[in-house]
Design a protein around this nucleic acid. Structure first.
Length: 465
RNA sequence: GGCGUCGUGGCCAAGUGGUAAGGCAAGGGUCUGCAAAACCCUCACCACGGGUUCAAAUCCCGUCGACGCCUCCA
């Protein structure tokens, strides 16, 4: 039984889907107006692993991730660049899709966009007005009436009274209650806009997700996810809108990832402490980013610095060490030892599943993988041949695959490879003559080329490092 | 000020009543011409102060501190 921490109840709960073996998963995507950063990568990877794990456990997952392509920031940036806002956002949608592919994030089942959901958004708002959950203001805005929603604040644990006491709530003169929020914003002159019963305008931020959810997944969904910075107001308002509109519970489980921290602060576009996904991938692999995410709980803040990145990289090397072939002169393992390795593969699999079933406890699942890594390496040291290693290595591949790790060994061009082989041949000759000085010199040369040398009884092996 | 999450070894991080997983780093060892890789060994009384209990990192109260949200934000 899978258990999930549900933000709505602040407890771990048994995961029971609306329909057997099917999961409706909606994850808030990004607002597309500039490069996405590694914080977005973290969120995307977290939910990619959720999706991959649910599929591994036999669920058919319908995974929806939206793009917010109509928004103040997009309009501002487009104005600054003298570009059409929808062209700009389309450009960044394609860019983000490439980021995700580079990170080995599986494409969502669908990627709805605000600009393509306008009729439904308008219909949704009309429905809310009809039910007196919303009201048009004289200036052409439409607001959601928070006092009409008796359990408003249930996700974030806030009460309307508390929020009114807060110093930073601004009372808009068009609003009946300071916490009322815009469903529709009247267009300012020259702004991109759509026709509506309330005049030209565009949707507020929250209504789009309610509408796209309804369009893609229906009135009720299993899991709604996103960064924990979206809990309030975004997800709170989504709940208010959708439940007021349908009269049914919206999402059963709300899951939120923690924030990626750079220098002790949340990485965010507003703070400007950003490392883009493009820049990250210039020096590190997608696997490193994924490993970084896996090393901690998805709900906790992720400490992102050189030290943690190095640790992630080394940890990956360790996992990869188990996937190397048997030594050339492997004499074969005794039957008992081979059976032991098979048993370890099986118990690792069980431990992995038990860990991941418990609210995606990836650090614990990783610990199980390292046990298998150790067992495989020990077996190899003890003379296991490739056939004997294969089942355990396949199990390791299977489980790391659930994490979306690719575990590729580095490669070089064929010319470089030819050069390396020549140097190694020369070195072997020197070693035969016990010319250690020359041998070590050649090893240094190879190291400079990025080649690691390993000598053993049965000869020299090498790999790109 | 309000709401929420949290404070475990040098770093990252599991563990939510019975005397602390794992990874990285570090030190020692096996192997090696020397290395490297792999393997073996060593390395914490869990922010602080009270309390509950036969027993607490784990429950309760308090203090201090960190982070997130309350404004756009994955």
């Amino acid at each position: 039984m899978i258990r999930l921490y549900n933000t709505l109840t602040r407890k771990k709960e048994d995961f029971v889907t609306l329909e057997p073996n099917r999961v409706k998963l909606y994850v808030c995507g990004v607002t597309v107006y500039n490069d996405a950063h590694v914080g977005h990568a973290m969120s995307a990877i977290v939910f990619d692993i959720v999706r991959r794990y649910l599929e591994y456990r036999g669920y058919e997952v319908k995974h929806v991730m939206n793009y917010t392509d109509v928004d103040d920031k997009i309009i501002n940036r487009a104005n600054a660049l003298g570009e059409d806002p929808l062209k700009l956002s389309q450009r960044y949608i394609e860019d983000y899709a490439k980021n995700l592919a580079d990170l080995n994030v599986l494409p969502a089942t669908s990627n709805p966009q605000v600009s393509k959901t306008m009729p439904l958004i308008i219909k949704f708002i009309e429905g809310l007005i009809e039910k007196e959950h919303a009201y048009p203001a004289p200036n052409g805005d439409v607001y959601f009436r928070v006092v009409s929603d008796e359990d408003y604040g249930k996700l974030s644990g806030r009460k309307l009274e508390d929020m009114q006491a807060g110093a930073r709530v601004e009372v808009g003169e068009m609003k009946q209650h300071p916490m009322d929020f815009a469903l529709w914003k009247a267009a300012k002159p020259g702004e991109i806009s759509w026709d509506s019963p309330w005049g030209k305008g565009r949707p507020g931020w929250h209504i789009e997700c309610s509408a796209m959810n309804l369009a893609e997944l229906g009135e009720q969904i299993d899991i709604h996810g996103g960064g924990n910075d979206l809990i309030f107001p975004h997800h709170e308002n989504e709940i208010a809108q959708t439940e007021s509109y349908t009269g049914k519970q919206f999402a059963r489980y709300w899951i939120h990832n923690g924030m990626l921290q750079l220098g002790g602060e949340k990485m965010s576009k507003s703070l400007g402490n950003i490392i883009s996904i493009h820049d990250f991938l210039k020096t590190r692999s997608a696997d490193v980013m994924r490993m970084l995410v896996l090393m901690g709980s998805y709900r906790a803040p992720l400490i992102f610095n050189d030290e943690t990145q190095d640790a992630a990289e080394k940890s990956l090397d360790r996992v990869k060490s188990a996937l190397r072939p048997a030594s050339p002169s492997a004499s074969g393992l005794a039957a008992g030892a081979a059976a032991e390795l098979a048993a370890q593969a099986e118990s690792t699999k069980q431990a992995f599943i038990a860990a991941m079933d418990d609210d995606f406890n990836s650090p614990l699942a990783l610990a199980a993988l390292y046990e298998l890594v150790k067992a495989i390496n020990t077996a190899r040291d003890n003379g296991a041949n490739d056939d004997q290693l294969a089942p355990a290595q396949n199990a390791l591949r299977e489980l790391t695959g659930v994490f979306g790790l690719q575990l590729k060994e580095k490669t070089g061009s064929s010319e470089a490879e030819a050069q390396v082989k020549a140097l190694i041949a020369e070195r072997n000759e020197a070693r035969k003559q016990k010319n250690w000085a020359r041998s070590d010199e050649l090893r240094d040369q190879l190291k400079a080329l990025g080649v690691a040398i390993e000598d053993s009884k049965d000869g020299t092996t090498w790999r790109w490092s």
